[in-house]
Design a protein around this nucleic acid. Structure first.
Lengths: 307, 307
DNA sequence: TACAGATCGTTGACTGAATCAACAAGATAT
DNA sequence: ATATCTTGTTGATTCAGTCAACGATCTGTA
């Protein structure tokens, strides 16, 4: 997997190159603007903060105190900013825009927005939409200061389709399963919908950091008192952080609460990671049979847990 | 929708700020490195091109000839690069790395990769994966020099699930429809799977720029000789570029080829954009009836086209 | 063939960016 | 009370970025 890491590093570097090269528009100082990029950033920070000090701005932008000092000096000479004493700390100076400064900043903002708008207009709508979505994703991730939170919740409209999509695509990609598996899951979902009994059945969607990364279903079995666990899956990127165990746990708990005496599940031997999770949860292998499905020769396994 | 444009511009600017602020690691010259960011970029270009000239590198990086000249002069003084005459154009000098230069570049590359790797390690796996996917998306879009291509193709494993997901989520978002709609679509898909007749039925997925943006289904109707058009949808971001018309066209054509004499479809009056597409394709409204479904009071419409 | 116009690399000149070091004034901890 | 930080300023230096000018060379066209 070192190969993979190299690929990831290369991808981020390629992104960095592509971004700095092609969107120099965003980073270079606007041609007709009286402000350099660095000056524009300082101005932006002054305008968007309440009673900022030079040190504060320097920290926000990662700039040296010396540079801030000189930049502010130039701004003051041009009549754009003024300073007043800090009420409680005489080392600080509070910076504010003069009316000329506000005017200059407003003009700069207008030009910048126009330039960014023109940049966006250069992309076809479908790419613009994807570009913005990706940009929002990166912003969020880069700015996040919390840990990704895992939550289990009821499915919302669209979620079952998403699960069908991910499971089918994933098993096609990882194990080469063909469309038959999608057929099977579609049937299961249709039946789940049609005969849904909220007191005895349930479905969970696992969200990690706001994104669906797994699911599990609890449905009535063929025999009274016996429930089935179905359609457990976890996204590759989210594996190894206990998502599957939490899903299985929730399912078992609900099965107990609903009064079932046994929980069965059917899986395939190639899904080795899943097997470990089932066994850790107390499931025992009770039956094993080869079958040809999904375009492959497989060994089906039935696991069972007495509740 | 000017509001929306402002949001888009703000989003891209926020992204730019976040990216330049937090990943200064990527943009700032590495602390222990003997090369500035600008020097590193020039070195990178020299190493990755065959027989580059100064002007070529300047164009690639958007740098001034004067700056390239001085940078190369410093490199030459440090014994990192050497120049030889261009065989056919005496104005050019061909630049190459000396063995010392290659060594220095290799060291720089190693350090850069390590720094980027460390940056990536700072993100939880799920975010790292999403960050990289977003970065790849942006790279591709920014570097693309072709127009987005629209293709219609057969569904692959996972695609029907994706369609279920998008339709359910979309109509929930746009019209407030509840889970009932998802149930309906799931049933349709399950039945499509179960009774699929490849000579008389078909499904298409529309891909724009490599992404699924719509679908349409042709299925047998209740009466012999009558086909049904079902589950037409197009992503909001892809609307207005003829995707829906192309899907409907493909569906009608196949219905004709399969020997059907009539093509019916059922839709709802709130889907006004769809109605225009159907009418433009020659469909006539033959029936209209109010119904309460998907959590809303709706007016169902049956359209029909004689083939 | 001759020549205008463009390209290439170099140099000078200048402003600003970035960084390091030193300093005085003021705040803070113990 | 004193050592230790923090804030803002200034000096010094190197490099980035930009404009202008220059000589050498190439290219297209009259």
């Amino acid at each position: 997997m070192d190969q993979n890491r190299d690929n990831e590093i290369a991808a981020l570097r390629a992104f960095n190159r592509a971004y700095t090269a092609r969107t120099g528009l965003l980073n270079t100082h606007l041609d007709q603007s009286p402000f350099s990029l660095s000056e524009a950033r300082v101005l932006y920070e002054i305008a968007h903060r309440t009673d900022p000090t030079a040190a504060e701005i320097g920290r926000a932008l990662g700039l040296d105190r010396a540079q801030i000092s000189r930049t502010l000096k130039r701004f003051a000479e041009r009549g754009l900013v003024e300073t007043r004493d800090h009420p409680s700390d005489a080392r600080n100076l509070i910076i504010s825009l003069t009316s000329d400064g506000q005017e200059a900043f407003a003009a700069l903002e207008g030009n910048t927005r126009a330039a960014v708008g023109a940049l966006l207009d250069g992309f076809p709508p479908i790419r613009r939409a994807r570009l913005l979505e990706a940009a929002r994703t990166i912003s969020k991730i880069v700015e996040a200061d919390d840990e990704p939170a895992l939550i289990l919740r009821d499915p919302e409209p669209g979620d079952l389709g998403y699960i069908l999509y991910r499971q089918s695509a994933l098993y096609a990609q990882e194990y080469g399963w063909n469309g038959e598996y999608e057929v099977l899951v579609t049937k299961i979902l249709a039946q789940f919908h049609q005969t849904f009994d909220p007191t005895m059945e349930a479905a969970w969607v696992a969200e990690l950091d706001g994104q669906i990364v797994g699911s599990i279903f609890l449905v009535k079995g063929d025999t009274t008192g016996v429930a089935k666990l179905r359609l457990l899956y976890v996204e590759p990127d989210a594996r190894g952080s206990g998502v599957a165990s939490k899903l299985v746990e929730a399912c078992i708990q609900r099965a107990r609460d609903a009064g079932y005496t046994r929980l069965d599940l059917w899986t395939n031997s190639v899904l080795t990671a899943a097997r470990r999770i089932y066994e850790r949860a107390g499931f025992k292998l009770v039956d094993e049979a080869p079958h040809h499905s999904f375009g492959k020769d497989l060994v089906g396994q039935t696991f069972s847990l007495n509740l």
